[in-house]
Design a binder for these strands. Sequence first.
DNA 1: CGGTGTCATGACATCGGTGTCATTAGTTCA
DNA 2: TGAACTAATGACACCGATGTCATGACACCG
Lengths: 363, 363
Amino acid sequence: MATIYDVARVAGVSPKTVSRVLNGDAPVKKHTKEAVNKAIAELGYVPSTAARAMRSNKSGLVGLITGAISLSPNRSENSGLPDLYIVQGIQRAMEASGKTLLIADTGGKMNRVPQLIRTFEEHRVEGLIYVADHHREVSLPPVSSTTKMVLANCFDQKGTPSVLPNDYQGQFNLVNSLIAKGHRRIAYLALSRQLEATKLRVAGYKDALAAVGIKFDPALLVPAEVDVSEDDAGVQLLWDAIDRVLSLPEPPTVICFGNDRMAMRAYGILRSRGVALPDDLSVAGYDGHRLITDTLYPTLTSAELPYAAIGIRATELLLGMINGTADVPTKPILVGGPVTPGNSVKDLPSPITHLSSIGRTTL
Amino acid sequence: MATIYDVARVAGVSPKTVSRVLNGDAPVKKHTKEAVNKAIAELGYVPSTAARAMRSNKSGLVGLITGAISLSPNRSENSGLPDLYIVQGIQRAMEASGKTLLIADTGGKMNRVPQLIRTFEEHRVEGLIYVADHHREVSLPPVSSTTKMVLANCFDQKGTPSVLPNDYQGQFNLVNSLIAKGHRRIAYLALSRQLEATKLRVAGYKDALAAVGIKFDPALLVPAEVDVSEDDAGVQLLWDAIDRVLSLPEPPTVICFGNDRMAMRAYGILRSRGVALPDDLSVAGYDGHRLITDTLYPTLTSAELPYAAIGIRATELLLGMINGTADVPTKPILVGGPVTPGNSVKDLPSPITHLSSIGRTTL
DNA sequence: CGGTGTCATGACATCGGTGTCATTAGTTCA
DNA sequence: TGAACTAATGACACCGATGTCATGACACCG
């Protein structure tokens, strides 16, 4: 591979002059510049970032740690490809910056993280983003104090700068949109209570009801006892939960599910039980998982998780920290997402009274 | 960031001795070694790959060009996440090699490829893998002759080493498994004729029939006129195609679809028309797209596309070429995949005669 | 006891760029 | 016309590792 010295020799100038032509950081005579460019083309010269990095002490690299690549395909319990969307956002935002992204995949094993960070430090990355597959708390090994770090879709105790989805606002807006369509008996079959997202969304659910003066009915809030799985047992549990709320004296007119996947399974279950969607019952999901929301019939109303935006925001933050133009936020940055309306929610023509259960007799 | 000189000073030895401790390439007294390691720990020293790379002229980097990260989430017409699975395989195989993977995403724009290759060359990658999202021909800009290159899931005119799915064998095996279950009237609703995969799979389909002496019936082979899309028109076209083969004087007992996604849509269509699966009709897909095959009821029989294996094979090939231990193959390397059986194919109790159409009267 | 070998270590050059400073030529202005 | 300045270029050191060669201390052998 040709070096700057080769170019200098061919062009009949000093290496430093070639460097000046490459970087345009000092005036070079037009004639000289042309000679240099000719030599560069002739030799197919490409400057070495390694040498540059060494001299300038700036690698131009940013590290990304994720499980998105290895995990997404096989885990069937997930709701879309959250971390992959985030990585996508990061890529997009990073492109513009001129920095090179180094992606390391954990392969799902958290104990590989220290090793990956080590490799990044050997490459002298200027910053580091850790992407989690769902909103949760993490605990990462310490990194060199000179390396900036940002957490995406997760947070830690150490107060590392982080960017999170606004789960509270998301569920609030979703429920609010249902209320706007005339629904007042709104059931919520949530995900596991253990999840950060669940805690926040339940709060959003309750507050949205409270905001319009609907009394919260505990019977309508069913937290998943177990993760809804693929197998028959999972289907049974889901049906039990649905059956329970639909058998209430005042059944709901709409059920919000913890995620789109759960809603998708519910479609099949409800349909096999003869419940027409959305005429007999309205349904909403969560995640805005396009593959599901758009493919289902009727299309599914959902709250979009702003994954790409989280990635973009995290990147902007990191780049700002690297340049010193952004100061480190002390609180997590919350990113909100819109409600994506589908046809799974029926417009109730007139406000339904508390005692109404029209249409539920078909069950 | 501490350097090897800092470590040397603290340990009271020469930088070269520190280097020897780090690399273990020459004997160092136990006492000295301990002093050095202590200094390393104390200073939190991490060697710089940039400096190493410069001296050794080996970057330890391998470049990967793909559209997997940016594209997979949004394209709904796809059949799984082919390129992502391949990337996954590459990651796994690369891990063991100790090299660092540099992933660049095209963002779907082929015209960005030269730029990405340029960046890789600046980083002096030792090798380069290009991953396509489906089996096809590509034409890439030339790379420096010193940089090894491998194509995964694609091939070119220049005879660049490539690794491809064995589409011929896949369809052959799939059809063969149907024949083994007693089917003899086997329809094939293929994907677009333009696709490399289609050409090969059609050949596999025909040969599988021929191998057991079943005469090929052109009426049973329906190439998709257009890509099957999400909208109503797409559904209509798919239904028309299905309707056409089922209306034949001797209708098929099983339909093979071009991919799992098409089969999934067919499930909905057939069911809404009152066709019971697999009792009235058997169905098979292609791709082995778990999310679909396992989720559908009944589970879908499919031919697995060995994406991860392609990635692994491509990586092994590239690493071999870099080490000089593998010689460059002149023909594409074909990787086969198994048939993943589901419940969508009925076991026909006895060989069906050519005139039989039992069970089709329900249509 | 001197010659030869091995062990352990260090001095120094080198990889390919760029920052610093020096140098030369030409220009401007008092 | 000479001092002061700018434009254009080069010489040289340096970034942080490691390869090569040299050196000093022992051990071993005849």
